[in-house]
Design a protein around this nucleic acid. Structure first.
Lengths: 238, 238
DNA sequence: TAGTGGTCTAGACCACTAT
DNA sequence: TAGTGGTCTAGACCACTAG
């Protein structure tokens, strides 16, 4: 009824959590965080409330508890295999990513693509094939199929440089992907597009990308191995 | 002093947690877990204690809370890029992994290896080069350097098939690795060992593996691309 | 309306660490 | 000995869901 509705309660544990986060952000690993009883005093809340706040930061990996000693800023966790787009990947390498569309049209899904996208063969898919450049030189040929049902009007809209951005705008930024990575020799067409000799060794990445539970993209990317090294971080379960 | 020392306290929240885990393990996703108040009754504990138990299972990804409805078995989380050994990898592919040592000796670390292992050039390293077979056919040439300081007497001991097992026995099973994946043409020696034509396209994986904070292994593996596809799962932060 | 999870209180005792 | 985090109690009110 009144304007308080947007934030119905103060959520004390959130207040405590964000206060501690602001203290701790940017601090060196090993710096002490306020003790729980100190936060109880400062905020005038029960200790269980403070613990709830700290629990969240601990499970986030920001803090580390040491019984009998106190709570401290944890060393940053190692990051495991983040999912990035070509554009983001090139940016991370300090290169400028550009694209040239080779083909963009509506097609009927073949059996392989249909299975990977979790649709029925013959269903509509968007077939988008692009040359990918980094610092003005050929880097990769990307051949992608997208689930048309999830992307109405995609081909009519102005084609963006970043597929991930376009998907993100529809709330479909991929959150998970499985890649199958192989090595091959460039055929005549690939060699021509990549501006290498036919038979040159290329790196081939076949990707199936999902946004939440929904498969959105299946693609095959052929990289120039002389310009591109794929970096992967692997870890045990967090 | 007496035999109770091994389990000094009953840890009620652990008892509740493991009880719920046993109920829930193997159950279908979406099945209801006992309600919190039901567990309060059954165990005669406070609700906060039950919540502590359930919190653990929720953050493990085993349970999912739905306010106003209850707590349910969560759908299994997607796994992100697990770190496996060659032996485990081949087992997962339903193939029999075997090895043949080509070289195993103590050496002085060169600058590149030293940097990767976080030691000083000239420090002792173990250089271990092996042929890796899968189902009795060549699959990979693995050329590894290990930090000798962490593995005293490694060369004197019987050389195991699985490096990961050997490291695990010393509490040094790698928990994190960064791979740099490229594609190349087999040179004469590689072609001979892999039993392919020289110039055949091969997949090259350069790995740096850490156990906790300690770099233990740096290696370069050359795979037959016609027999091997590398699978990688990528995800956003959990 | 009954039941669920979400939040919160105001205490308590314990084991452990550091001084 | 003083302080810390770990565990636990016995309540309470709230928003939400479902019948």
């Amino acid at each position: 009824m009144d304007e308080v509705a947007a934030t119905p309660r103060s959520l004390k544990h959130v207040a405590v959590r964000e206060y501690v986060r602001s203290l701790v952000e940017g601090a060196d690993a090993g710096s002490p965080a306020p003790s729980e009883r100190e936060l109880v005093q400062r905020f005038g809340v029960a200790r269980m409330t403070v613990r709830q706040a700290m629990d969240a930061l601990v499970s986030e990996g920001l803090l580390e508890r040491m019984p009998g000693r106190g709570t401290f800023v944890a060393r940053p966790r190692r990051r495991v295999g983040r999912l990035t787009s070509f554009t983001e990947d090139m940016e991370r390498r300090g290169m400028l990513a550009e694209s040239q569309t080779l083909l963009a049209r509506r097609e009927q899904a073949g059996p392989g693509v249909a299975k990977a996208l979790g649709i029925t063969p013959g269903d509509a898919v968007i077939h988008w094939k692009r040359m990918r450049y980094a610092d003005n030189a050929p880097m990769c040929i990307e051949d992608a199929y997208l689930n048309e049902v999830l992307l109405p009007g995609f081909l009519q809209a102005a084609m963006p440089t970043s597929l991930f951005d376009a998907l993100a705008a529809r709330g479909l930024r991929p959150t998970w992907a499985e890649d199958a990575i192989t090595s091959d020799k460039a055929n005549a067409e690939e060699a021509n597009l990549l501006q290498v000799q036919p038979g040159t060794s290329v790196l081939v990445v076949a990707r199936r990308a999902l946004a939440g539970e929904k498969p959105v993209e299946v693609s095959r990317s052929v990289y120039r191995a002389d310009r591109f090294t794929l970096w992967v971080q692997l870890g045990e379960e967090s």
